[in-house]
Design a protein around this nucleic acid. Structure first.
Lengths: 247, 247
DNA sequence: ACCTGAACACCGTTCAAGT
DNA sequence: ACCTGAACACCGTTCAAGT
């Protein structure tokens, strides 16, 4: 679905620098359209994404886009692919780091990328991620988890658990904001949550009251590391290899 | 935000049975509006949700809804709250089951409920879940995880990891469908994924090729249990209590 | 091959007006 | 207090037509 037709590969960002175009129309390309769509959401948030807004940014009529993209839904899928294609898979094969460290490195980098394009996590929940970039992430994760000593089938299961934890956490994190970049800083968002939680009557919500400081940080990099680390602990426990037995 | 004004509590479903109303207008209520919204998405999927569609189902003009609900976004939040309010928190305190079993029971029941209202997981990613029903789920989970011997702060952290895993998994699962109930059966969805994965050239995607059967089941109750169980293993490892030391 | 004008069937939200 | 008519500024998508 995302690899339909002969698409020019390797010229990402070739023409994203001029937001509003001028001068002779040199003929659009599919990457121009995706670039423009990403620029639209990065400027106006997820609600700003529309065929008409993307067309306007390209200086073209709305229906022109249908030359390059089958539908708004297909365009959304391309945006997800574009961002996933920028994921640094090299982090999953860094020498001198354990499989655990490599996965944490990759997950944190991916989280940062997704927070930089806060409309994208929601789009990931909107259609299947079956493009080449999504598959490449899966390949890298299964590979890393296999090296941990896990049987390949369990490595694949563990891969999906990690994907769910990472994308789910980022999506819920963005959901607490308006999604318009730049997002409020983590400390501001924590403070907002703390303020909300502090107003709850402790009689009604004793557990929330007892854990305000932790729950205020649910959408933080700290909690992100704790959750992922705990999941990786569980994954490691399914390994028969010794703990020292890492690359 | 979801507890604004004096809302009549305890009469859920009081008037959802008549889809298209007739006869003397007895005056609407906020629960009627939320009922109608849920009915709209359960019939037409997430894309069918609109202020105008809900109003039409209630036999009323679109702008009438603004008497009961501040905006479309607020309505979406109410729909999430309604479904969360139906979660069976009793499963988190069932006698004779370990904390692990209770959490798994609850998570599987919640997954089933969300799959029955497939528009809802996406709505959960769209706005903060800060209503009373969402808080109650948090209370129950923190309580259960505390009884495991975990310090209350770690119980709160573990709670969020579980929430992310459960909601994230369901949201990604729904994303592979069109979201219109009833969803295709699990076996049909697995078969569709297997077919897609089987078409990939093994040279390009060796890991995917080696794990087709597992990856075909990524969106299954089987994988859901594996992921959650593995996470709970990691959580249990943060406990100092003995494994037998469960309620 | 690519872009447009025009049209169709929609949206969410507001405001003043009615009862 | 509740509902409406009318309006505003939008949507995605199609189709026939132009170049």
């Amino acid at each position: 679905m995302s690899s339909t037709g002969p698409e020019p590969v390797g010229n990402l960002g070739s023409s994203a620098e001029t937001p509003t175009r001028r001068g002779p129309r040199r003929s659009l390309s599919r990457v121009d359209v995706v670039d423009a769509a990403l620029a639209v959401v990065d400027e106006g948030g997820p609600a700003a994404l529309s065929v008409r807004a993307v067309a306007a940014r390209l200086g073209v009529r709305p229906n022109s886009l249908y030359t390059y993209v089958a539908s708004r839904a297909a365009l959304e899928g391309e945006v997800v692919e574009r961002v996933l294609a920028e994921a640094d898979l090299g982090l999953l094969t860094s020498p001198g780091r354990s499989w655990r460290e490599r996965i944490v490195d990759f997950a944190e980098a991916l989280r940062a990328q997704l927070l930089a394009h806060p409309a994208v996590p929601l789009l990931m929940m909107t259609a299947p991620m079956d493009g080449a970039a999504a598959l490449a992430v899966g390949e890298g994760l299964i590979g890393s988890l296999s090296e941990s000593g896990l049987a390949v089938d369990d490595a694949a299961r563990a891969t999906y658990a990690v994907i769910v934890q990472v994308i789910g956490a980022v999506a819920l994190e963005v959901a607490e904001t308006d999604g318009v970049p730049p997002l409020p800083s983590e400390s501001v968002r924590i403070e907002a949550r703390r303020a909300g939680l502090s107003m709850l009557p402790p009689e009604a919500w004793p557990m929330a009251a007892a854990t305000v400081e932790v729950a205020a940080r649910w959408n933080s990099s700290e909690q992100f590391r704790w959750s992922l680390g705990t999941l990786l602990d569980g994954i490691a426990a399914r390994t028969n290899a010794l703990p020292e037995d890492t690359s």
